[in-house]
Simulated assay, not measured.
Amino acid sequence: MQALSNPESRNYARIAGALYLTIAVSGGFAIAYVPEAINVADDPAATLANISAMRGLFLAGIGGDVVMMLSEVLITVMLFFMFRGVSPTLSGMAALARLSMVAVMSAMLFFSAAVFTLATDASFLSGFTAPERASLAELFTYLDAVGVWIWQLFFALHLVLLGILILKSGAYPRLFGYGMTIGAIGYALDSLYAFALPEVTLLGLARIGLLAIVTLSEVGFALWLLLRGPRVSDKTAAA
């Protein structure tokens, strides 16, 4: 595609922005909406019953995950080439961190598949009693949550590096760079809070504030890519 031939062009940036927004929509649906509609806290049997009753919604959530992950692979490559001229090393590090996040997300689909099978196939592990099957589903759901805590660490590293690249590039508003670099810590704090320190109220509040900052920065950057694109240098304009 001609639009992908020049990473400094506005058409290239628009495609990247569209991918970013695709990730936001599909990820919000799969990660936030579907679990909220199906999962019942501290009641795995009820969660299994909901999955069985709402198979379409659960599978749509998996579909959203797939769309998000495929878009993540594409945006990772595009961001690498967008910022390779700023710093090949930092751009490569950022790309590897984001791809590592996608690898963890992909592995998490195994747990989703296991829970879906427990909920919809009575012959699967038929030697187990209903409470035992529910306990297994609870374990897989917990491991899925652990996967979130892991990929957030890789994503935090990616956002710090991407924020630095934005600051060094001069092609985008520096506010986005500062917001990503500082706000990315919220993802790391969220993992720490959920896994090890849920009783530390101050930590919980800090992660909420930082996550709000990084989310606004990411959305702002995506919209800027889609609507404005990079500041065109004299060399690019001449070309």
Results as ranks from 00 to 15, higher is better:
D121C: 00
T117E: 15
V86H: 01
E138W: 12
L99P: 08
M82W: 00
F81E: 15
L70H: 09
R98A: 03
V66K: 13
D65R: 14
A134S: 08
I75K: 02
V77Q: 08
T117G: 04
P88H: 05
M78I: 06
G64A: 05
G127L: 10
G92I: 02
M78F: 04
L118E: 07
G92L: 13
M82E: 02
S100Q: 07
T76N: 15
M108C: 08
V160M: 15
A137I: 05
L161K: 05
S100F: 10
T89E: 13
D65M: 09
F80R: 14
P131D: 03
A137D: 09
G92N: 14
H158A: 01
G147R: 01
F155E: 01
W151N: 07
G64L: 03
T129K: 08
G127W: 11
A94T: 03
E72P: 06
M69H: 15
L161Y: 08
W151Y: 15
V77N: 14
A130F: 10
R133C: 04
V146K: 10
A97I: 00
V148C: 09
L161C: 01
G127T: 03
T141N: 15
A103Y: 07
L136A: 12
V102A: 14
V86G: 05
V67C: 02
L118R: 04
I150K: 05
F110L: 11
F116A: 03
L161I: 01
F124R: 09
S135E: 10
V77Y: 14
F81V: 01
M108V: 03
M108N: 09
T76K: 02
F83I: 00
G147S: 10
G64F: 01
D121R: 09
V148H: 12
S126F: 11
L159C: 15
A156R: 12
F124N: 06
A130I: 06
F128Y: 15
H158T: 03
F83C: 01
G147D: 08
L109G: 01
T89N: 13
L70V: 07
A145Y: 13
S71V: 04
F140W: 12
G147F: 00
D144A: 11
V148F: 15
A94K: 04
A122K: 04
F116N: 01
L70I: 10
L157V: 05
S112P: 02
A122C: 04
A107V: 09
M68I: 04
S126G: 14
F128Q: 10
M108S: 10
A145R: 13
V160C: 13
S126A: 14
V66S: 11
E132P: 14
W151S: 04
W149K: 08
A145F: 08
V86A: 06
T141P: 12
L161P: 02
